[in-house]
Simulated assay, not measured.
Amino acid sequence: MYSRLLLAALHYNYNANRETARRSDGLERYSVRYPRFRKGAWVVVPIKEKASYGYATSLIEALRESYMNSPKALQETGPII
Rank of each mutant, 00 (worst) to 15 (best):
M1P: 15
M1Q: 08
S3D: 13
R4W: 10
L5R: 07
L5F: 02
L5E: 08
L5K: 06
L6E: 07
L6H: 07
L6T: 08
L6I: 14
L7D: 12
A8V: 06
A9E: 11
A9D: 07
L10C: 15
L10H: 09
H11K: 05
H11T: 05
Y12G: 05
Y14I: 00
Y14P: 01
N15G: 02
N15Q: 02
N15R: 02
N15C: 03
R18I: 03
R18P: 05
E19P: 06
E19V: 08
T20W: 14
R22D: 03
R22A: 10
R23E: 09
R23K: 14
S24R: 15
S24I: 12
D25G: 04
D25Q: 08
D25M: 10
D25P: 00
L27Q: 08
E28Y: 00
R29V: 14
R29P: 01
Y30I: 01
S31P: 00
S31R: 07
S31C: 02
V32F: 06
R33V: 08
P35G: 03
R36C: 03
R36E: 10
F37Q: 00
F37M: 00
R38W: 11
G40N: 04
A41F: 09
W42L: 13
W42F: 10
V43S: 03
V45T: 14
V45A: 06
V45E: 15
P46F: 13
P46Q: 13
P46L: 12
K48T: 15
E49K: 11
G54Y: 05
Y55K: 03
Y55L: 05
T57R: 12
T57N: 06
S58C: 08
E61Y: 06
A62T: 08
A62D: 07
A62I: 08
L63R: 12
L63C: 15
L63E: 11
R64C: 12
E65H: 05
E65D: 09
S66I: 09
S66C: 14
Y67R: 07
Y67L: 01
Y67T: 05
M68L: 15
N69Q: 15
P71K: 06
A73E: 14
A73G: 02
A73V: 11
L74Q: 09
E76H: 07
E76Y: 04
G78D: 13
I80Q: 07
I81M: 04
